[in-house]
């Protein structure tokens, strides 16, 4: 089976955000594979271990994204592709178009991605890609069982569980609970260094100029106002509980 995983490198979720010169500062930040994409990588590797095939991880992003792809190779993916080019703006319309151009001449049974990225959080690129490729998509999956030309899927829909079947090729986005991603082993890290790693620019892909015009643009970036610590209630616990309910009524007018 031919499985592709599209992934993005993101800040670790324990990082604080600092804005410098109108941009999010990246100095000293720990980068990781977007946690939702990591489930997708793990799932692809498990499918390969069960029934063979090739797992290719693909990322559109800055040069630093190579590290995330190498981590995926160390986990067990077979090949990596980094599409990096300053002419690609951070706009979901453009990024999905670039990916679609990459996939034009590829053959695939499954494309996996994350439910959303923990940085931008828009959750658009994977679903847009499926639409551009004309294949069905199922997002937020927590179970995936391909067999023959179709796949049985379980999907989390705001806490409800949906059981679906879809014909392949199809695109899926991973939700928490799909699996428990492995850590790269030392032999895995060593092997990853010898695995095929392809770097592409726009010159290698057939993307027309109109497709590089972003559809949206940022006019302001700001941090939310810092929350102040409020009051720690005093007294014995029953008195504190009564006080809290009273404050919610009188001070906060919340109930």
């Amino acid at each position: 089976m031919n499985v592709y995983v599209i992934l993005k490198q993101t800040f670790d979720t324990e990082e604080k955000i600092v804005i410098q010169n109108g941009k999010v500062a990246e100095d000293g930040v720990k980068f990781v594979i977007n946690p939702y994409d990591e489930y997708a990588v793990e799932e692809a590797i498990r499918l390969k271990e069960q029934s063979g095939g090739i797992v290719t991880v693909v990322s559109v992003g800055p040069e630093r994204s190579a590290e995330a792809l190498r981590t995926a190779l160390a986990m067990g993916a077979d090949e990596a592709v980094l599409i990096s080019d300053d002419r690609i703006p951070a706009d979901e319309f453009v990024v999905s178009g670039v990916l679609a151009a990459y996939f034009t001449d590829k053959s695939y049974d499954l494309i996996l991605g994350g439910n959303f990225s923990v940085d931008n959080g828009a959750g658009q690129v994977a679903v847009r890609l499926a639409e551009l490729l004309g294949i069905p998509h199922i997002s937020s999956i927590i179970k995936l069982e391909p067999s023959g030309g179709s796949a049985a899927v379980r999907r989390d829909a705001e806490g409800d569980l949906e059981v679906l079947e879809v014909s392949l090729p199809a695109l899926f986005t991973a939700q928490q609970g799909l699996n428990e991603p492995r850590y790269p082993s030392l032999p895995g890290i060593m092997k990853a260094k010898k695995k095929p790693f392809q770097q592409l620019s726009l010159d290698d892909l057939d993307v027309h100029t109109g497709a590089l015009e972003p559809k949206t643009s940022q006019v302001e970036l700001f941090l939310p106002p810092a929350r102040q610590a409020g009051q720690i209630l005093q007294g014995d616990i029953p008195a504190q509980a009564a006080k809290l309910v009273e404050l919610l009524r009188t001070q906060s007018k919340a109930i």
Binding site: E92, F93, Q124, V127, E131, P214, K215
Partner: peptide
């Protein structure tokens, strides 16, 4: 759950920009 899943597909179909969340 529905909007997150449906909107990007519509955006792709309409060649539209999308503002999520």
């Amino acid at each position: 759950a529905i909007g997150r899943d449906l909107a990007p597909a519509i955006a792709a179909k309409l060649q539209a920009g999308q503002l999520s969340d």
